[in-house]
Design a protein around this nucleic acid. Structure first.
Lengths: 364, 364
DNA sequence: GTGAAAGCGCTAACAG
DNA sequence: CTGTTAGCGCTTTCAC
């Protein structure tokens, strides 16, 4: 495929020599600019040589010259790459790739000044832009002095509003959660929250309660239990609720996240309750590693991790970071699957929960 | 911190100008080589200027000159970055970082020739070496023509034995699985396999049966059920087994992986059986997203994902790829947690399952 | 002890 | 239409 008679990568000069032209000419052939003035014959000979030698431009040299590396840096502000951040990285990767760029990925470890070290290391390699992300949505501690580079946050924000960011619209997601349940006719609802310290927690709950009222259920009638984002919390809270007599037991439980929903599944199994016939369950996150574990498949609401990464990379690739609003909120759309059924004794319109348009990004 | 009066990153020349010396001198100060001949005074002035300007070397320029980029490429041969591969990337990342390098990460997507495109894109950026990995251990289709770069596989192998690789020692892991159970006195054992097509499946089972014999249990006495690596398979298979009368029901179930173990947990909950009192369970993989979901915590066997990434990166960083054996097998060590108890009616030595030395990497 | 100069591989004026 | 030349920012040999 590339029968190069050389022991090193061929250079422009090698190609030129083989085609009997100057390196410049080769460069012109390879980088068609506006005013092309290369004869068809020369072009053909050059391309032939390029092909014969298996020539590929040295992007390091190109970068030095063009002062553009075709490289986007992404630093994950965690001790390691984690599942949630992985999705964001995927989004950034795919957009970058489609623009001919690749990703320089690092994480902050547990090092002191991890963030600054990571950013510097990437900036030194002249990345064209920088994305900072993390696993759960949160405020980031950014170094005081930022490298002079386009910078965007994904699934994270900075309290000073100095750096543009992409965030999940959690209130919207909370409303979607409620809508999935209310549209199926449920009125005895329970909501199991994640831990109160997390940025998303109160927004999800607030959205849920708002939407519930739209459906004629009083906020006060929703059984809200405070927990934390793990299986055992969902398990423990659900166990209590499911021990209630049939007449007062909630017919549907909304969970702070998918892991808690798993806990609810376990509690239901123990209580001999079937999902969704006896109990409807909605999760949150649409977190693949959990989702794939559950039968029946979990109805949930999707965190736009991939999109946050994608849009962040897009802003960098298009050089439009300057025009970005301070915060862009992306919808958390409902993902109806099999864990929600009509409330016992209720009949819905038979079309299942209506999934309304998930809407475009909102800017605030 | 870096009050540069410049609108661009300062260069060596800028530093030299400020310190009143040539760029050469600055370079000498910054790159202490064997024969240092810089006066203490000059050195001090230079470092002062470096500091004042917040100078950091341009690694693109360095790379061009030194023909070494301090960059390792890793391509994940999957449509996207996945959880298992993430661990391997973490291992490679951490080793690379400790050597002053960073990772250029990409995946092959679903593109035709994805692998070649990915490798080329990284090779063009002059990575110092290349790691190829994937999510589940398997043979890789490598392009016929490889870029002239050190290349190592992690959690993958090529059938032609042309490229060195790091692999999990699955047979060893299978033996560990059995040991955890046999040491606790279990003799009525069941083994639920993953799907037969996967490279690891038969090795795990074979190791299990081998070890079981060491403990005086005939291979034929082990109830082996063929399934696949998902929760529902573990669930379905376990449901059958747990329906058996107490006297013949297995007291312990070994699972092809952690997800199947989750299925066993669900079946146990439905059957009203407690883990580990009534049933001991062992998983495989030590896959964090699943592990963290289970109560009691799952006793399992660890896949050396992180280490495969780490060692692959180490070989590249140390330039020792040439000395690598064709295949290096890393141990899958037992991870005793809470899902294994002494077999009913048996008393063990009270120290729980003995965990023997997990051993070093074996080369074949 | 320090600096001038050449060059890594490529691009882009500017000549011819 | 094509080639010469001058760098991008850095390292390194060799001269002073």
């Amino acid at each position: 495929m590339a029968p190069q008679g050389l022991d090193r990568r061929p250079t422009l000069a090698d190609v030129g020599r083989m085609a009997g032209v100057s390196p410049t000419t080769v460069s012109f052939v390879l980088n068609p600019r506006s005013k092309q003035t290369i004869s068809a014959a020369t072009r053909a000979r050059v391309l032939q040589a390029v092909n014969d030698l298996g020539y590929r431009p040295n992007r390091t040299a190109q970068s030095l010259r063009r002062s553009r590396t075709g490289t986007i840096g992404i630093v994950v502000d965690e001790p390691a790459m984690e599942a949630f951040a992985g999705e964001t990285v995927n989004g950034a990767h795919d957009l970058a790739w489609s623009e001919g760029s690749v990703l320089l990925v690092t994480h902050t470890g547990r090092r002191p000044h991890g963030m600054r070290l990571a950013m510097d290391e990437l900036a030194d390699r002249q990345v064209d832009g920088l994305i900072v992300t993390c696993s759960g949505t949160r405020a980031l501690e950014l170094p005081e002095t930022l490298p002079p580079l386009p910078l965007v946050l994904a699934n994270a924000f900075d309290d000073t509003y100095a750096v543009p960011c992409f965030l999940p619209d959690e209130r919207f997601g909370g409303r979607e959660t409620a809508r999935l349940l209310c549209a199926a006719g449920h009125r005895r609802l329970a909501y199991l929250t994640g831990h109160a310290g997390a940025w998303a927690t109160s927004l999800r709950l607030e959205g849920f309660l708002e939407e519930v009222e739209q459906h004629g259920v009083a906020r006060g009638d929703v059984v809200v239990r405070e927990g934390y984002y793990y299986v055992d919390s969902g398990h423990a809270l659900a166990r209590e609720l499911l021990a209630l007599p049939d007449a007062t037991r909630p017919t549907a439980i909304a969970c702070g996240n998918d892991r808690m929903a798993l806990g609810v599944y376990l509690a239901a199994a123990e209580a001999g309750l079937r999902i969704p016939e006896d109990l409807s369950v909605v999760g949150y996150d649409d977190h693949e590693p959990v989702i794939t574990q559950l039968r029946p498949q979990l109805t949930t609401v999707r965190l736009p991790l991939y999109d946050m990464g994608r849009l962040a990379a897009e802003a960098l690739a298009h050089g439009s970071v300057g025009q970005l609003p301070q915060r862009t909120y992306l919808p958390c759309p409902a993902v109806p699957r099999d864990s929600v059924a009509a409330a016992p004794g209720r009949h819905t319109d038979g079309r299942g929960p209506r999934v309304r348009e998930t809407g475009r990004a909102r800017h605030r």
